[in-house]
Simulated scan of single mutants.
Amino acid sequence: MKKLITILLTLTLITTLFVGCSKKDKVKEEQGNLKDNAVTEVKEESKSEDVEEDKVEEVNYVLYLKQKSIPFIFAEKYTIKADDPKLKDKSIEWIALEHLINFKGFQDFISPIPEGTKLLGLNKENGIVYVDLSKEFIDNMPKDKQSTKLVIDSIVNTLTFFDGNESVMFKIEGQAVKKINGVDLSKQFYFSSDFLPDK
């Protein structure tokens, strides 16, 4: 009987020592993890401070892209660095409109601009943006009034996103055009919500 009690006491003592040691190890491990996390956080903070110091100013623009299967246009925001060499030769309006014309498609979004259209000229005067496009704009335009209006709204909304641009007027190959598919092209166009999904 004494032997049994001795064995039980010995086992209890060994178990207590083992549990105590493993708890100490666990506490040490947790302390080590906290320390590592604190060091990582400090490094991350210093990294983000460095990034902010090196951050180059960006210029925003918005493209009004067509959804493939429904007659709506959606605003998609893009940025270009303020020190981008393109901005030395071209205005931000030119860059945005050229991007809209040449947009290759992403997910369900496509460029609504007729295929082959080229931007021939763009200038601004008294809040009006004058856009000159190649003849493919008319030649490859869908032949219904609603699709034509959607294409025009896409261009107008993209260009009137910028401060000071109130309206847009169109020329084709340097010439004024009166109508395309029943849409009067001789007037000024203003930002339109006709094809926006939230209107």
Results as ranks from 00 to 15, higher is better:
residue 132 D to L: 13
residue 74 F to V: 15
residue 75 A to I: 06
residue 45 E to G: 06
residue 111 S to A: 04
residue 64 Y to C: 02
residue 140 N to T: 07
residue 67 Q to Y: 09
residue 102 N to D: 13
residue 97 L to D: 04
residue 79 T to R: 05
residue 134 S to G: 07
residue 115 E to N: 10
residue 61 Y to S: 03
residue 156 V to F: 07
residue 99 H to G: 07
residue 86 K to I: 15
residue 37 N to I: 15
residue 131 V to F: 07
residue 92 I to W: 00
residue 89 D to K: 03
residue 86 K to M: 13
residue 47 K to R: 13
residue 122 L to D: 00
residue 142 P to N: 06
residue 48 S to T: 11
residue 93 E to P: 00
residue 90 K to I: 01
residue 86 K to L: 15
residue 40 T to H: 08
residue 112 P to A: 05
residue 91 S to R: 04
residue 114 P to Y: 10
residue 133 L to I: 07
residue 49 E to W: 02
residue 134 S to T: 09
residue 86 K to Y: 11
residue 62 V to W: 08
residue 53 E to Q: 06
residue 48 S to G: 00
residue 91 S to L: 01
residue 114 P to K: 10
residue 51 V to H: 02
residue 46 S to R: 15
residue 67 Q to M: 08
residue 138 I to N: 03
residue 44 E to M: 14
residue 65 L to Y: 10
residue 124 K to G: 14
residue 95 I to T: 09
residue 103 F to Q: 11
residue 58 E to R: 08
residue 108 D to I: 12
residue 64 Y to R: 04
residue 154 S to M: 03
residue 152 I to E: 07
residue 60 N to D: 12
residue 135 K to L: 03
residue 42 V to S: 12
residue 88 K to G: 00
residue 62 V to I: 15
residue 97 L to W: 03
residue 104 K to V: 02
residue 112 P to K: 02
residue 54 D to R: 15
residue 44 E to S: 12
residue 129 V to M: 02
residue 72 F to N: 06
residue 35 K to Y: 13
residue 118 K to R: 13
residue 116 G to I: 09
residue 111 S to W: 06
residue 78 Y to W: 07
residue 146 Q to L: 11
residue 153 D to C: 14
residue 56 V to C: 01
residue 127 G to C: 05
residue 97 L to S: 02
residue 88 K to Y: 02
residue 126 N to A: 13
residue 138 I to T: 10
residue 87 L to V: 04
residue 143 K to F: 04
residue 143 K to P: 01
residue 123 N to Q: 09
residue 127 G to A: 04
residue 89 D to M: 02
residue 62 V to C: 08
residue 67 Q to E: 11
residue 114 P to F: 11
residue 129 V to Q: 01
residue 71 P to D: 09
residue 103 F to C: 11
residue 106 F to L: 11
residue 128 I to F: 01
residue 97 L to F: 04
residue 49 E to N: 11
residue 42 V to G: 01
residue 39 V to P: 01
residue 87 L to K: 08
residue 119 L to H: 06
residue 76 E to C: 05
residue 101 I to V: 14
residue 47 K to N: 12
residue 118 K to T: 11
residue 79 T to Y: 07
residue 63 L to N: 08
residue 113 I to E: 02
residue 111 S to I: 04
residue 79 T to G: 03
residue 149 K to G: 08
residue 88 K to L: 04
residue 80 I to G: 04
residue 126 N to W: 00
residue 62 V to R: 06
residue 153 D to Q: 10
residue 147 S to K: 12
residue 71 P to F: 02
residue 121 G to S: 12
residue 129 V to W: 01
residue 107 Q to A: 13
residue 38 A to H: 10
residue 140 N to K: 13
residue 87 L to G: 03
residue 102 N to P: 06
residue 37 N to T: 13
residue 81 K to R: 13
residue 119 L to P: 05
residue 60 N to A: 12
residue 88 K to S: 05
residue 135 K to T: 07
residue 108 D to Q: 10
residue 98 E to Y: 05
residue 116 G to D: 02
residue 97 L to Q: 03
residue 87 L to Y: 03
residue 63 L to A: 09
residue 67 Q to C: 02
residue 118 K to F: 03
residue 70 I to Q: 12
residue 131 V to T: 07
residue 136 E to S: 14
residue 150 L to N: 10
residue 117 T to E: 08
residue 66 K to N: 05
residue 98 E to P: 00
residue 76 E to Q: 12
residue 152 I to G: 06
residue 142 P to F: 06
residue 57 E to N: 14
residue 82 A to M: 06
